[in-house]
């Protein structure tokens, strides 16, 4: 059954209900415990834990990861889903190893973001929102990252790269493993 349609922004609803639960090494568990210890209510730790699970599970919340979170926080999987899909930094689908997030909001836009985007996309051969075939890079256009004074900029993973020029982009991307 295939159907032709152009969903606005398809939600990752197709994910299968997890039948296995992720496990983590003790040091990661300890890291999560440290976050849980901060709050009187377990649920509060949902975002920090999501980041950890995402980091450990290849960059996104895979179904076993979701099952783990639900179990750890005493929530239903749907509770995890509703929160995960609200926040744009939580990935519910796989992303490339290096997630290049180019800021496209006003200050960056007028300071040369379009050139940078075009260059990055041409260099990697993908469009914003896509991942390279080898799974190394994903490119997305994101909203203001708080680097307007050093525009244009992008963030790779959690690293800020500011005052970009085409040459600098080459340098940065080429240096990535």
């Amino acid at each position: 059954m295939s159907q032709q349609f152009t969903p606005n922004n398809p939600l990752p609803q197709e994910a299968k209900v997890p039948d296995e639960i992720a496990t983590f090494p003790p040091e990661v568990e300890a890291e999560m415990d440290a976050h849980l210890a901060k709050y009187p209510v377990k649920r509060s730790a949902i975002l920090p834990l999501m980041f950890i699970v995402q980091r450990e599970r290849g960059g996104y919340l895979d179904p076993p990861g979701v099952a783990y979170l639900a179990d750890r926080l005493g929530l239903r999987i749907t509770d995890i889903w509703e929160v995960a899909t609200f926040y744009s930094m939580i990935n519910t689908e796989p992303v490339g190893r290096h997630h290049i997030q180019i800021c496209k909001t006003l200050s960056c836009k007028i300071m040369g973001e379009p050139e940078i985007t075009e260059h990055v996309c041409r260099k990697l051969g993908i469009q914003p929102g896509e991942t390279t075939a080898d799974g190394r890079f994903s490119v997305s256009l994101v909203e203001c990252l708080g680097s307007c004074g050093t525009a244009p900029m992008f963030q790779i993973g959690f690293d800020y790269h500011e005052n970009l020029t085409v040459e600098k982009v080459d340098e940065i991307l080429d240096a990535l493993p």
């Binding site: 209900v17 749907t78 889903w81 899909t85």
Partner: peptide, 23 residues
């Protein structure tokens, strides 16, 4: 039961459930 929830954000908000199947 909390089986059905809103997911997504803004104009992409939808009502649904993880995995898309209601148990």
């Amino acid at each position: 039961e909390d089986a059905i929830e809103a997911g997504g954000r803004g104009a992409n908000t939808v009502i649904g459930t993880y995995g898309g199947w209601l148990n």
